[in-house]
């Protein structure tokens, strides 16, 4: 047996020297000896795959934007021509900056409403113990899975004055809010609230009771302790919830498209602005692509800026527990 083993190892060594291997075989041989190489390779493959699938659409938008509209057919991977003026033309054709402003207003007001209400809910769910707490949490989770479209018809009726509201002896029709921010901000707030509640519940629940007690003994109310101590210490969580809400509103299509008449003066957001380029006789893909790029930029910048904010933990080493 001993000699056999010796022979085997001897054969292996000779084989390394004798057999001619290609680069792939050599790499496989090395990866078998050192599995970390294989994992690293898989990591790069996966990363490249995700980078291509996420970034290619943006590249494609850029290609379309730079190609003059009459040349857009049989496209390859490179733009046919170079037409940067498109980024000026798009603002001349349609007041796209106004649509962007509307989107910002809708996004910010929704974010503020959501953060305020979700903070209160997060405090209650994260820091208080009461009967029915998990049932309520579950209810919120369930509602967050409802398809938004299911709410659309009744809400449309309500916001366009089609619903009678009985107030004792008086019956009034609901106010006509069509073409105002309200019929968008209200459903957005309701739809995106559950996610923020969950995020903030987790963060607020982690703040040690001692800090809240200390704030209350020092002279705040419970609400004061929430705003002066708990929220500042949960800044990464609040930032995450805020950014996610803002991006969700910025990206929202359904209510944004249907709750106004598509004019910038009627608080229509970016999506309406992009569709506005479509004329009766032509479809200027280059302008629409350019508008899409401009529309995406603020969110991209926001994410890059907020990323640091989210990563930087404020509470590190704060408390001896």
């Amino acid at each position: 047996m001993a000699t056999e083993n010796e022979q085997q190892s001897g054969i292996g060594k000779q084989g390394d020297a004798d057999i001619k291997r290609g680069p792939l075989e050599r790499w496989v041989g090395a990866a078998i000896k050192n599995p970390k190489r294989a994992y690293r390779a898989m990591f790069y493959v996966a990363t490249v795959f995700f980078l291509v699938t996420t970034l290619f659409p943006f590249y494609w938008l850029l290609v379309l934007a730079l190609t003059p509209n009459n040349l857009i057919s049989d496209m390859g991977l490179l733009p046919k021509g170079f037409n940067p003026e498109v980024f000026i033309t798009m603002f001349e054709r349609v007041p796209f900056h106004l649509y962007m402003f509307n989107s910002f207003v809708l996004g910010l007001s929704t974010t503020i409403i959501v953060l305020l209400l979700a903070s209160l809910a997060g405090y209650v769910f994260g820091r208080l113990r009461f009967p029915g707490r998990s049932a309520l949490m579950l209810g919120i989770l369930a509602i967050s899975y409802f398809p938004p479209a299911a709410f659309f018809l009744p809400l449309f009726e309500l916001f366009t004055g089609g619903t009678d509201i009985v107030l004792g002896p008086v019956t009034v029709s609901s106010p006509d809010l069509f073409n105002t921010p309200a019929p968008m901000v209200l459903p957005f707030s309701a739809l995106f609230m559950p996610l923020s509640i969950f995020i903030l519940t987790t963060f607020y629940g982690q703040i040690p009771d001692g800090l809240e007690d200390a704030a209350r003994v020092e002279g705040t109310t419970r609400l004061g302790a929430l705003f002066r101590v708990i929220i500042p210490l949960s800044a990464p969580g609040v930032a995450t919830a805020g950014v996610l809400t803002f991006i969700s509103v910025y990206n929202e299509f359904f209510f944004s498209f249907l709750m106004n008449n598509g004019e910038a003066s009627s608080w229509a957001p970016i999506v309406a602005g992009i569709l506005k380029y479509q004329g009766q006789f032509d479809t200027p893909y280059n302008l629409m692509a350019a508008a899409s790029i401009v529309g995406v930029l603020p969110v991209a910048i926001l994410v890059i800026v907020a990323q640091e904010r989210i990563v930087s933990g404020l509470t590190a080493g704060a408390l001896k527990e």
């Binding site: 001692g210 200390a214 101590v229 704060a318």
Partner: peptide, 18 residues
């Protein structure tokens, strides 16, 4: 607590870390 004229020192010290 704030209206009781008391001050408290906690076991976990509870300084506001921010």
């Amino acid at each position: 607590p704030k209206d009781r004229g008391i001050a408290m020192v906690f076991q976990n010290i509870a300084l506001f870390p921010h």
